[in-house]
Simulated scan of single mutants.
Amino acid sequence: MDMNYEIEQIHLSRIHFDIIHRMGSLLFMFCATTEKIEESSENIQWYKEGDSRRDNKDRMKESGRMLNGYRDNLEELMIIGISKAVEDLIFEYDDTFDVKVNFWNNLKRFEFYHEMTIIRNLNNCIKHSKGILKRGEKGNDYLIDEIGFTEGEKVKNLHIDIVDYLLKSFLFQMDVYWKSQKKDNPYLKYKNDSKKLKKILIPDFINDKKPRE
């Protein structure tokens, strides 16, 4: 067998694993952190007997502000992470096969490219405009004019469906991976089955709790 072919297949296998690893890590992080935030919200001692009404009110306001801040920051971090995952895939093709890929020019034919342009532009908004949709930045103009987001809106207030975008990013990357080899993307058959996609990214055994001794 051709040694070069074998080496290429090893590299491709690594890229395939990296896609699953990156997106699985993001999904696990988002779900686990969200669960912890909600658990904290339920367990906060909003009212403490013996404290003044003012102290209780201040504590409630501060606790609510902190929890909302955690949720907002988590959402922005996930947008950055999803965007970076696409950038990492592009880098891998460049670094491994010396294939120059431009996201904006070369990847339009792949499934869920549209959703990834939204994520990439939201990421740029977070990085360059402090997460505020201000005109003057090309990406912000696109989000306002083409997607319909409100000018002056904060990314954290858009409350996009992070899990949906994360799963579509996984499918997009796999589309690039398989179709660049002139093969069908086997994961696309699950594009309407989020439960199955989540199981691919986070196997059941990860969620199995080890019994306490």
Rank of each mutant, 00 (worst) to 15 (best):
L143V: 04
R135M: 07
F110G: 10
L107S: 05
K134I: 11
K127L: 07
V101A: 07
Y93M: 08
E137P: 05
K138D: 10
Y113R: 05
L122M: 14
K108A: 09
D88W: 06
Y93W: 09
K84F: 07
W104C: 07
S129P: 04
I79T: 03
N106I: 08
I82H: 00
K108W: 06
L133T: 00
I119S: 01
K127F: 03
K84M: 08
S83T: 09
V86Y: 01
N102E: 12
G136F: 03
Y93T: 07
E115W: 00
F112H: 12
N121G: 03
R120N: 09
N106Q: 14
L133G: 00
D141I: 04
D145G: 05
A85I: 09
K138S: 14
K130R: 13
S83A: 15
M116Y: 02
W104S: 14
L143S: 02
G131C: 03
M116K: 08
E115S: 02
S129G: 07
V99C: 13
Y142A: 04
D94W: 14
N106S: 14
F97D: 02
K100T: 11
E87Q: 14
N102P: 05
N105T: 11
Y93K: 09
N105R: 11
I79S: 01
N121W: 02
F112I: 10
I80C: 02
T96M: 09
K138A: 13
Y142S: 04
K127N: 08
N105G: 06
D88V: 10
I126M: 03
D141E: 12
F112R: 07
S83W: 01
V86A: 03
D145Q: 11
F103A: 11
E115L: 01
K130T: 09
